[in-house]
């Protein structure tokens, strides 16, 4: 459409207001970026005397940052992959089935999305504890005392990758299932039927027809699952205690608590590295954001 010309007052008001809102939004970022590049950074925003990327190198070579990053990548990557597999298959089944449980299940998914995780944290802790003991009962005789800790670090439910991956994946499942279900609803059955007519088995249909067709849906579901798992604070805080398994959010949080001996430059560099994937994923997911509003609540 052709834009109507604005009066000067209207234009000044418009751009003035937008400028104010933008300053409000961008201001807090300033310190983080400046501090990450300033070798003598402090808690206060100041113009650095010199600029260096030293802090970023130190994250990878000297400090715990690399460990936290690896742990975060393992847990969030694992959770995202799990969500993709489960939601891909589950969403397909939900879309194609005409069974009685379809409607209650889909309403259930929406209701699950509104439950605040903090309301579940106590019973979850007990469930995770029970699962952990069950796994320990299996691991102890097999691994023997010297490898027991290492194996539990991978398969444990408390202080272990596996439990946290399952938990984070489950929390992202409802939205992902919803996205995949609505996505498969738009994929015509005809492609599949053609493949069935040609005598393709389910495996062949899956590889040749369904997965290629589902790619856009999987991208959206995977991005939202990753963003949520990557930013999550409550679950790593509650279920991880050993320093070797510490993930980025808790590493940053606990480093920030040691008020008088913080290396702000290093911490800011870690925070920038932590933030970058989240912002990239968010930028990619942005165009799907409104669609998820329909059934999945805030992504």
């Amino acid at each position: 459409m052709a834009q109507v010309r604005e009066t000067t007052t209207a234009a000044v008001t418009r751009y003035g207001l937008l400028l104010l809102i933008s300053i409000y939004c961008i201001m807090p970022f300033l310190w983080l970026l400046v501090a990450a590049l300033d070798p003598n950074a402090g808690l206060f925003l100041k113009i650095p005397d010199s600029v260096s990327f030293n802090s970023f190198f130190r994250v990878f070579f000297e400090e715990d940052g690399m460990l936290w990053l690896t742990n975060s990548l393992i847990v969030c990557g694992g959770a995202t992959v799990l969500v993709l597999v489960l939601a891909g298959f589950g969403g397909y089944a939900l879309s194609r089935t005409r069974a009685w449980w379809k409607r209650p299940f889909l309403y259930g998914i929406i209701l699950i999305r509104v439950i605040p995780p903090t309301a579940l944290i106590v019973p979850l802790y007990k469930i995770m504890l029970t699962c952990n003991q069950a796994i320990a009962g299996v691991v102890r005789p097999i691994a023997g005392p010297e490898y027991y800790r290492q194996v539990m670090r991978i398969f444990g439910f408390i202080d272990g990758y596996f439990g946290l991956i399952l938990l984070l994946a489950t929390m992202q499942l409802p939205l992902a299932l919803w996205i995949m279900k609505t996505f498969f609803d738009t994929v015509s059955r005809e492609y599949e039927e053609a493949a069935i007519m040609d005598g393709a088995t389910f495996n062949q249909r899956l590889r040749r027809v369904l997965v290629p067709l589902a790619m856009p849906g999987l991208a959206a579901a995977g991005l939202f699952a990753f963003i949520a798992a990557w930013g999550d604070f409550l679950f790593p805080l509650t279920f991880i205690s050993s320093p070797e398994l510490r993930m980025l959010p808790i590493g940053i949080y606990s480093a920030f608590l040691r008020a008088n001996q913080i290396d702000y430059g290093l911490l800011a560099a870690i925070a920038v590295i932590y933030t970058a994937p989240a912002i990239i994923a968010f930028a990619l997911a942005r165009r799907f954001l409104v669609q998820t509003f329909g059934g999945g609540l805030k992504g």
């Binding site: 939004c25 310190w31 925070a271 932590y274």
Partner: peptide, 21 residues
């Protein structure tokens, strides 16, 4: 993009930035 940025930042980093603010 500027208005959307705060939404994309992980909670802990947001808290840290505001601690400085």
């Amino acid at each position: 993009a500027v208005i959307l940025m705060p939404n994309a930042v992980p909670e802990v980093v947001a808290a840290m930035m505001w601690a400085s603010m």
